[in-house]
Simulated assay, not measured.
Amino acid sequence: MPKLSVIIPCYYNEDNIPVTVRELIANEASFSPEVDFEYVMVNDGSEDGTLQALLDFRAAHPGKVRVVELAGNVGSYNAIVAGMAQATGDCMAIITADLQDPPELIVPMYAYWQQGFKIIIGNRQDREETGLQQLLAKVFHHLMKKIALSNIPDGGFDFVFLDRQVAEHIIALQERNSNLFYLMVWLGYPYVNIPYIRRKRQIGKSRWTLKKKAKLFIDSILAFSFFPIRAISVVGLVLGLAAFSYGLYIIGLRLFGSQEPEGWSALMVVLLFVSAFQMTALGVIGEYVWRGLDAARKRPLYVVKEVYK
């Protein structure tokens, strides 16, 4: 009997949980009766009533729900890894707690898994959100496809279905300051892409702030691309050639007795530009060095406070 683990990271989702779990349970009717379901709900340091809502769900469905309470907030990606480590299913679906991703998509995902695919991606073909949020998302995923991983689907994704073998690889890697879903594609397994339209959030307010989005953008580039370091090298080479050429020009003026240019203002502009580039280059290099230090310390990605089985 195949067992399907549905992993849901939860952060301030007190009002979402009752609605989400109701739809998840109703979605079980679309599966064959021999499929055994397990719900792994990870409370990622929420300080509202999220934990109690999860425990109520567990009490209503004994033996089917596992609630993982983390000691503090570690971010949704690390919370998902914690859920993977606790899940016991042969395959796993990762879905958000706010119902922006349709649970009914798990049905065709499971069908592809039965055909032998180890990764099935629910790809956001479009979004019901409008304005700046939609624009930033499109720009982010377009850049990632161009400079990081060319084989990721357009539009981005965080709704995936994976085989237990893939989950074990992710757990073993214990990679920090990265993009968990890009890491799944990086493993190299062939995947199936199922496009869908991401729903607009109906309940509660998203905690996915601009600061968190900026960190994810930086993490994704530095974890999967050498573009920043290569860009520094190219700009440095161009500036070096320009300085060498200008130096030859000044020497030529001195040798042939011509009047040398007096450009104090131009000199200051060049000095400020080069200094700004140097500080930027040091910042990029520092980001790489800090990530190396963070990995070398080998601190755990998360700390489990309690598991309610």
Rank of each mutant, 00 (worst) to 15 (best):
residue 99 L to S: 14
residue 89 G to C: 10
residue 81 V to Y: 09
residue 115 Q to H: 12
residue 67 V to W: 02
residue 87 A to Y: 04
residue 78 N to G: 07
residue 88 T to D: 12
residue 63 G to F: 05
residue 96 T to I: 02
residue 94 I to D: 00
residue 89 G to K: 08
residue 134 Q to M: 07
residue 88 T to H: 12
residue 73 N to L: 01
residue 128 E to Y: 04
residue 141 H to I: 07
residue 72 G to S: 14
residue 77 Y to K: 11
residue 130 T to A: 13
residue 103 P to K: 06
residue 71 A to M: 04
residue 111 A to Y: 02
residue 95 I to A: 10
residue 103 P to W: 02
residue 81 V to T: 11
residue 68 V to C: 08
residue 76 S to V: 09
residue 101 D to R: 03
residue 100 Q to E: 15
residue 135 L to H: 11
residue 63 G to H: 03
residue 71 A to G: 06
residue 139 V to Y: 09
residue 141 H to L: 05
residue 136 L to P: 01
residue 129 E to R: 11
residue 88 T to N: 12
residue 141 H to A: 04
residue 132 L to C: 03
residue 102 P to M: 04
residue 67 V to M: 04
residue 65 V to D: 07
residue 140 F to C: 03
residue 84 M to L: 15
residue 80 I to P: 00
residue 122 G to P: 08
residue 103 P to G: 06
residue 133 Q to K: 15
residue 105 L to A: 02
residue 83 G to A: 03
residue 68 V to S: 07
residue 139 V to G: 06
residue 76 S to M: 10
residue 86 Q to D: 08
residue 115 Q to D: 12
residue 70 L to Q: 00
residue 70 L to T: 01
residue 141 H to V: 09
residue 106 I to M: 15
residue 125 Q to G: 05
residue 116 G to Q: 09
residue 68 V to Q: 08
residue 76 S to H: 06
residue 86 Q to G: 01
residue 86 Q to Y: 00
residue 91 C to D: 09
residue 128 E to Q: 14
residue 112 Y to L: 10
residue 126 D to E: 06
residue 127 R to Q: 08
residue 116 G to I: 02
residue 114 Q to M: 13
residue 68 V to W: 05
residue 139 V to R: 11
residue 110 Y to L: 07
residue 127 R to K: 02
residue 132 L to A: 14
residue 126 D to M: 01
residue 110 Y to E: 10
residue 65 V to M: 04
residue 122 G to R: 11
residue 132 L to T: 12
residue 108 P to F: 10
residue 109 M to N: 02
residue 116 G to H: 03
residue 83 G to E: 00
residue 130 T to Y: 05
residue 99 L to C: 11
residue 131 G to S: 00
residue 134 Q to D: 13
residue 91 C to M: 15
residue 88 T to M: 10
residue 128 E to S: 02
residue 85 A to N: 10
residue 76 S to E: 10
residue 68 V to P: 04
residue 125 Q to W: 05
residue 90 D to H: 11
residue 96 T to W: 00
residue 105 L to M: 14
residue 71 A to Q: 08
residue 139 V to S: 10
residue 109 M to P: 05
residue 83 G to N: 02
residue 133 Q to D: 14
residue 99 L to V: 03
residue 84 M to D: 07
residue 126 D to Y: 05
residue 77 Y to L: 01
residue 78 N to M: 01
residue 136 L to N: 08
residue 112 Y to K: 15
residue 123 N to S: 15
residue 83 G to S: 03
residue 131 G to I: 01
residue 86 Q to M: 11
residue 82 A to D: 01
residue 106 I to S: 08
residue 124 R to F: 10
residue 78 N to Q: 12
residue 102 P to C: 08
residue 117 F to P: 01
residue 121 I to C: 06
residue 86 Q to H: 12
residue 101 D to C: 02
residue 125 Q to R: 00
residue 72 G to Y: 08
residue 72 G to T: 12
residue 120 I to C: 11
